[in-house]
Write a protein that binds this DNA or RNA. Structure first.
Lengths: 340, 340
DNA sequence: CTTGGCACTCGGTTCGACCGAGTGCCAGAG
DNA sequence: CTCTGGCACTCGGTCGAACCGAGTGCCAAG
């Protein structure tokens, strides 16, 4: 059942040629362009075996072969060699990302850079709230019974939420609440804040208690139960580069990309940075993305991942190049955030 | 040169039929579907005149007629009657938008709603900073020489910016700066904040001066000189609905939509709410969008516009329906923000 | 001014022929 | 047992001819 060396070489050549030419590749072309040292007829025999094993397929009888998802998988796992970035690309990364003034800026630049570098659709997640800690909480009165709660995390994210109280709230009350929540929560990971918030309600001075009750409900809701994840996209125009890659239309892909939840499933499930993941075609959990591949990786400061980023493109993509680019950008962004 | 009543009626019928069938419309079909009271031959004569005047055109000799940009323009200006929203649509708007918990939520819901309602690409701008006032400024120390400046506006926008100081900064200094900037700027429109910021630098207590110098530079830069505009999109998948509408590919359109500046030019230039603007095909300032139409309107609280929103679609769009939807959503969002 | 008639144009479709890339199989050589 | 050259076969893509039909422009008559 195992394939000998030459058959693997043939598969590698097929993937390489198909990715660059966008056309099914036949035995003659293969023999000409690569030094395999054997005749087209021999290659045909190898191809027959590869097809039987499910690594390649024929679009129709008199056409060349095209890799299947399984073929790409083997290629990615065992046949591709790392393609280091060119100095120009490395320079582009640092030039593009240095000079970002805040987190929004970092994320926006990153997603554009990644789209440009890979010529695919780029996806970048903001540092996940659930993996961040509280740096500061601010309460800003905006109306008699309303205050704006502003959360600032150690990763630089700033989140807002309106809090509505059942009665008018005095300035001293706001001050009291502010120092109470800050002393209880600053420095805490959001993921572990639930207990603190409940404790807070008990420990706080009696006059503040009713207010704190409302506030802690909102805090629990927005910080712990359903912390908002932010995701940005760029390079959707790259989907139109080769119309052949998608059956009929790119519509289902565009639809999938509009769903936050889908994007989160694609790139958000990361544990450690530098853990890179490639999902090829049908391996993908999302129905609409069965004809695309996703390369994703975690990025972060040190050993723990803050969030994910990645790119999405046709299964016929330049895996080695894309993987290098994604990895390099993730590392750079991680370092950048660690320094701030 | 002026067209008589029947010719206008014919143009209206052509636009209507073409929008719904997506096919060039001929004289026979026109006579059958509309009660114009004349024969196809007569309609042909009218069409010949309309074509000579540039309102309609023939894709090729033996095809029916299609409206030109000029034809759509006349239709929008003089021939279309307002199409009120159905009760179901009105209900959808209020259900969809009520229950938003903060500005991000409002904007996100709005853009999705608009895309769904019009079945086009929806564009919504956050309340413009230059038309907002300062509600609160917060300074949060994040490192020895760094603080995070957080601006909260009366429209609920929260903006952040990192400020780097040349030396370590003490807590009292931060407190001093915080109260200084707040007392000087709270309640001021950002557009008029420049003078205040310069004054601030002179009036502030001497020990704070060097710090204030750095801070005021950043303030000027981020609040006055290049206030950041935010824009969100939804419904790009709608571009694929009819492939015929775009010459060859939607690529140029997707590219244009990725440029913040382009979007800003399309929907950001509004003076008063309820001033609705329709840009048809070639009227569009952006090269890549010459085959699309944009319907935009300002939204705001009371008489002054906060920002713009709108939709973009093929020139062959249902103008009356789209215009009503855009107007209704803008009004609803304006009211929603006025109440918060 | 309107109408019916008529010749004309031209894009779209269908059909058949043909070409060529590519395959699978087989027999013979190494 | 493996590789190779030869050969028949398949089948998608292209080209051209024929044809159909929608739609037009023009004209003469009402």
């Amino acid at each position: 059942m195992s394939l000998d060396e030459r058959k693997l070489e043939v598969l590698r050549a097929i993937v390489g040629d198909y990715v660059s030419t966008e056309e099914p590749v036949g035995s003659r072309a293969l023999a000409e362009r690569h030094q395999l040292g054997v005749s087209p007829a021999t290659i045909r025999n190898d191809m027959a075996v590869l097809e039987e094993e499910g690594y390649i397929t024929q679009p129709h009888t008199s056409a060349g072969r095209v890799p299947t998802d399984k073929g790409y998988r083997l290629f990615v796992d065992r046949l591709s060699t790392v393609k280091p970035l060119s100095p120009a690309e490395k320079r582009a990364i640092s030039q593009f990302l240095d000079g970002a003034v805040d987190l929004d800026d970092v994320v926006n630049r990153t997603v554009r850079l990644l789209a440009q570098l890979t010529r695919q659709v780029a996806v970048v997640q903001y540092p996940s709230l659930s993996r961040s800690s509280v740096r500061h909480l601010e309460l800003v009165p905006v109306a008699a019974q309303r205050i704006l709660l502003v959360l600032i995390t150690d990763t630089g994210r700033v989140e807002q939420r309106m809090v509505e109280f059942p009665a008018e709230i005095a300035d001293e009350t706001v001050t009291g609440l502010r120092s109470a929540v800050n002393s209880a929560l600053v420095g805490r990971p959001l993921a572990e804040a639930a207990d603190q918030i409940e404790e807070l309600l008990e420990q706080v001075a009696a006059p503040l208690r009713p207010w704190m009750s409302t506030l802690s409900t909102v805090l629990l809701e927005t910080l712990v139960e359903k912390p908002e994840e932010r995701i940005v996209l760029a390079g959707t125009a790259n989907l139109t580069r080769s119309a052949l890659d998608f059956p009929g239309t790119i519509r289902p892909v565009l639809e999938a990309l509009e769903e936050q939840m889908v994007l989160l499933r694609l790139i958000g499930e990361v544990e450690s940075p530098s853990m890179l993941r490639v999902r090829i075609g049908g391996e993908n959990p999302v129905e609409n993305l069965r004809s695309t591949s996703v390369v994703s990786v975690g990025y972060g400061t040190g050993a723990n991942a803050l969030a994910g980023l990645g790119v999405l493109g046709p299964t016929r993509m330049d895996y080695p190049g894309t993987i290098s680019a994604v990895r390099a950008v993730a590392r750079y962004v991680g370092d950048l955030l660690a320094g701030s």
